[in-house]
Design a protein around this nucleic acid. Structure first.
Length: 487
RNA sequence: GCCGCCGUGGCUUAGCUGGUAGAGCGGGUGAUUCGUAAUCACCAGGUCGCGGGUUCAAAUCCCGCCGGCGGCUCCA
């Protein structure tokens, strides 16, 4: 049994080696080989292409987000677990919850039905077995009473098995099913694991769309491309933050040049194309949005694939208008990519901002503390509590620095915590009925932007900024003195 | 998985060629009630990642393991 697995694995790897890749840049409707493309206006795309093609990377330091995730008490390594399994502190859990809720909402608004499927499956299930043989990833194996199980590495299994048993007609198509997989497991090699970028247990929003034919597949592909752009943008990652890659078989490309040109029109930026002379994965077309980090490493966030193989393998079919059973195509979509990887990207982006003199921060809707209220002295503590209470009641995460520390110290701490709004209250403020608020997003590292505003004005401002995004209450005690430090 | 570097109180770290640990931050206590980036003093806190070995003696040398990072590889 073990021996057989080994054979299958090498066979699949060999297949992979056999397919040749050709690299191009698609820009303004023209396909140019990577060697001929003028990258001078696209330094990040150049970095990305280098990373993908030459696999060249000279890095001699720990990625910046690792120190940040620890210092900001978002996440940390958990030595008692396997590598690549993190602990998330209250702030990290909050950020994850918000992202999870947001992406899930996006997919449901898009028309997906949310389901839940098991996290482990029998290794001997005939259909799954063939899938595993085809993709020799390293899985976690769990021993049951009689059978052995593997932990899922995506939601494909559960959703495909569900669809295989479902009665689906052409009227139901396109049929979208969504699951937030917490977790998906991939036993990546140890040397591949880094901070929040690459994990062995990660949270993956995974949507599958069953479509009746290639026309419908292409239409959905385009819609989901747009969905992914929107999702990342709302999360805080704009198209300037990532590079687009499209991987396609030569045949598909030749037959769909116009379609790919239309795709490239959506973001109007050059796209790295990897073309395979034959199909060796289950898909004929996929795109990825790749985040390029502070050390020039790239990793995929959103991705959509057109799967031409698994409907057959899982015996998924639909009844056509003519009453005949037909074989659909399936799209795989992760609108945001792994949630942990989104946090990694946001932290790396903030780090790169700081290098350019901009105070690093998270988007306001994701900031664990949105407003810190600092009383100038003990005399204004009660007023500070009142202000914080008012904010929290209006669904804004606010806390109060009630510690016996100097004002300077409190201001400094609020800043190193990346708190977007710091409101100071003293005699002047009480008399004027206004707060003196430091606005991080409009500050520079050396020069803070400060504004007098009423509580209502502050509320309006934050409400506007966070419009349409999910909210969760402060995950920590309001008073800093009552709050533990997790490191 | 392979190769390399690393692992000292909660955190950051000093400790040269072996003689059983020093600091800063954080924490506790007291003083201080402060107008925008670290107030002062005192106190507590360490089986030096884990397990073996060499030695009169190991944080320091050797072996194994675990964990982190980097490279190779890989990323459904």
């Amino acid at each position: 049994m073990e021996e057989l697995d080994e054979k299958e694995l090498t066979q699949a790897l060999r297949d992979e080696e056999k397919a040749k890749s050709y690299w191009y840049i698609l820009h303004d409707g023209k396909l140019v080989s990577v060697e001929e493309f003028d990258f001078s206006n696209y330094p990040k795309l150049k970095k990305f292409a280098d990373y993908e093609i030459s696999k060249r990377r000279a890095v001699d330091r720990v990625p910046p987000h690792v120190e940040l995730m620890k210092r900001l008490q978002i996440a940390d390594y958990e030595e008692a677990s396997d590598s690549g399994h993190m602990r998330y502190y209250p702030k990290g859990r909050l950020i994850k919850s918000l992202l999870e809720e947001f992406v899930t909402r996006k997919c449901i608004e898009y028309g997906a039905m949310e389901v839940e499927t098991p996290i482990m499956y029998s290794r001997d299930h005939p259909t799954l077995r063939r899938y595993l043989e085809r993709f020799p990833a390293r899985q976690y194996i769990i021993k049951g009473d009689k059978r052995e199980f593997f932990l899922r590495f995506a939601a494909c299994f559960g959703q495909f098995l569900m669809c295989s048993d479902a009665v689906i007609t052409y009227r139901n198509l396109p049929l979208k099913i969504y699951e937030l997989t917490r977790y998906s497991f991939r036993k990546e090699q140890r040397g591949e694991l880094v901070g929040l970028r690459r994990l062995r247990a990660f949270t993956m929003p995974d949507m599958h769309t069953i479509v009746k034919d290639m026309e419908q597949a292409k239409k959905e592909f385009m819609n989901q491309y747009r969905l992914s752009v929107e999702t990342l943008r709302a999360i805080g990652l704009t198209p300037e933050d990532y590079e687009v890659a499209i991987r396609v078989t030569k045949d598909f490309y030749e037959e769909n040049k116009e379609f790919l040109r239309e795709i490239s029109e959506i973001l109007k930026k050059p796209i790295l194309i990897e073309m395979w002379d034959r199909r060796f994965f289950y898909f004929v077309l996929k795109f990825e949005f790749n985040f390029v980090d502070a050390l020039d490493k790239a990793s995929a966030l959103s991705t959509v694939q057109i799967d031409v193989e698994n409907a057959e393998r899982y015996d998924i079919s639909y009844v056509g208008k003519d009453g005949e059973k037909k074989r659909p195509y399936i799209l795989h979509c992760s609108a945001s990519g792994a949630i942990e990887r989104c946090i990694y990207a946001l932290l790396e982006k903030a780090y790169m901002d700081a290098e350019r003199g901009k105070p690093p921060m998270l988007p306001v809707w994701l900031s664990p503390v949105q407003v810190r209220v600092i009383p100038i002295s003990e005399n204004f503590l009660d007023t500070a509590y009142e202000v914080a209470e008012k904010l929290n009641k209006r669904l804004i995460r606010a806390d109060v620095d009630d510690r016996d520390e100097t004002l300077n110290k409190k201001v400094r701490d609020a800043s190193t915590e990346w708190i977007p709004y710091v409101a100071v209250i003293g005699k002047r403020e009480v008399e004027e009925g206004k707060l003196t608020v430091t606005i991080r997003a409009e500050s520079e590292l050396e020069k803070q932007k400060r504004m007098k505003m009423s509580v209502e004005e502050l509320i309006d401002r934050i409400k506007k900024e966070c419009e349409g995004m999910p909210f969760k209450p402060l995950p920590l005690p309001v008073r800093l003195s009552e709050r533990p430090s997790f490191r």
